[in-house]
Design a protein around this nucleic acid. Sequence first.
RNA 1: ACUACAGACCGCUCUGUCGCCUUUCGGGGAGGAAAGUCCGGACAACACAGAGCGCCGCACCACCUAACGGGUGGAAUUCCCGGAGCAGUCCGGGGAUAUAGAGAGUGUCACAGAAAAUUACCGCCACGGGUCAAAAGCCCGGGGUAAGGGUGAAAACGUGCGGUAAGAGCGCACGCUGCAGCCGGGCAACCGGCGGCAGGGAUAAACCUUGCGGGUUGAAAUGCCACGCACACCUUGUUAUAUGCGUUGCUCGCGCAUCAUCCUUCGGGGUGGCAAGGGGGGUAGGCAGCGCAAAUCCUGCCGGGCGACCGGCGGGAUCAGACAAAUGACAGAGCCCCCGGCGCGAGCCGGGUGGACAGAAUCCGGCUUACAGGUCUGUAGUUUUU
RNA 2: GGUCCCGUAGUUCAACGGAUAGAAUGGAGGUUUCCUAAACAUUAGAUAUGGGUUCGAUUCCCGUCGGGACUA
Length: 153
Amino acid sequence: MPGFSRQERLKSRKVIARLFREGHSFMAYPFRVVWVNPTPGPSPDGRGDALPGAVRDGSPLPSGEGPGVGSCTQLAISVPKRHFRTAVQRNRLKRRIREAYRLHKAGLYETLSGGPVSLMLMYIAKEELPYRDIEAGMIKMIRKFPVSGHINP
RNA sequence: ACUACAGACCGCUCUGUCGCCUUUCGGGGAGGAAAGUCCGGACAACACAGAGCGCCGCACCACCUAACGGGUGGAAUUCCCGGAGCAGUCCGGGGAUAUAGAGAGUGUCACAGAAAAUUACCGCCACGGGUCAAAAGCCCGGGGUAAGGGUGAAAACGUGCGGUAAGAGCGCACGCUGCAGCCGGGCAACCGGCGGCAGGGAUAAACCUUGCGGGUUGAAAUGCCACGCACACCUUGUUAUAUGCGUUGCUCGCGCAUCAUCCUUCGGGGUGGCAAGGGGGGUAGGCAGCGCAAAUCCUGCCGGGCGACCGGCGGGAUCAGACAAAUGACAGAGCCCCCGGCGCGAGCCGGGUGGACAGAAUCCGGCUUACAGGUCUGUAGUUUUU
RNA sequence: GGUCCCGUAGUUCAACGGAUAGAAUGGAGGUUUCCUAAACAUUAGAUAUGGGUUCGAUUCCCGUCGGGACUA
């Protein structure tokens, strides 16, 4: 059942900040992909957190029931206001991207056999592309995802 | 029937497969503007001892409304169109108006012009002096004068007659404008009439004056829970006609708070506590507020009002509630529109990355702005038929 | 969500409500040079937009459009 529920959305401000600070990125038109391992490794300044992200807030995620790749892989979508002025355009693009991810995320899980990731898709095309192009870009992104890199960031 | 304008309204529909948010597990899930955030409220927190100054907003009148800078109706001014008339003007229709005050004061009015507010350059006029014996003319002087001149956006009521040395509302007639009075109409703004007085520009979307209104801050308000760090540091005050806080711009006034101990040369100083400020540190999660019945929405009948709207008796509906932010994606069919072809025509066939503007964020009432296509009503024009 | 501010040449800034909107720099072509640079003179180029007040608006007022700042 290819759904896209609330647990699969990247909402933590901390993780997003870490994504931009130490994440890896590559291009897969019309997307720029930024990704990082969600459980933080040894940080350069050596003050690594003892707690993983599971006990972050009052309502912990039910991640203990299975360490599957799909359970902790979270996605955030960004469409810049610079190119799309009205909220209707941005919402429509985000919905199309989300739909494409929902239908093709099984392929991503097969690629990510080593562990989950947190990733953000940034829409960088200047025009409003139809769903077919966005779907093609999504497939290209999953094919280009660096499999070996995410184990040892 | 078509076209144009104005006003009001609608704002594509259905099915299937995958999904999203919410839920009391039945169900429910964007708009006329959800937008801009331009006004006004509800609601919430704090304050409530006032006075003065300041600041902000509004500005013809009446009414509607919870309130408004909104709406309705009217008045005045002004513009446009049509008609009548020789003309002054009158009648009808439509539009615009931040429409209190420029007889309270201050400022500004470039260029041009003599002069831009008590104006004398040219001109006109009498008088005195000179030139001369005298007059005219010319020159000089101090005056009178706003009729004539050109300039300018704007030049000190208009026309005519009288009057005068020349002139001037100086006087008169008619007219225009303003002011106060009386009479009549109107709730009022205002209008009409009568006789009286006055005739010194524009600008208040320049300062300002007058009248009225405004306590301040706004859902990131506010209350609660959880997690986490650091009172460790600095400054000021702590016996008083002082300091701090509040009164939410300022001043006065008012209210509240100001503890203990040690030393002392009696001026004060030290220590702890407290209060305020600075700096630094931590967290940026959850719940309520948040759509629970209300200035609610739809509708039937009756009544009042020119109208905005209001009142009464009924019926029905209230079921979006996200928070890196749901309400979608794809496919098919229909509807409407555009283009091409066929047909006298109703219509048929084919094509169209044709179906706008645009996405709730506490909630309402307005305003403004954007908008494909369509519907209805009214006005004007053209054509056809009767 | 709320509060507030700003739009002038390509860029950075000027301009009591008053003539043809000024300066620096950048652009273009020219002189000079064997060629550049520098220097010299020349030239083009703008009040975000739509209304209103006024004799006259970059300036004052209102509405749009665009940009920015602050606010737990």
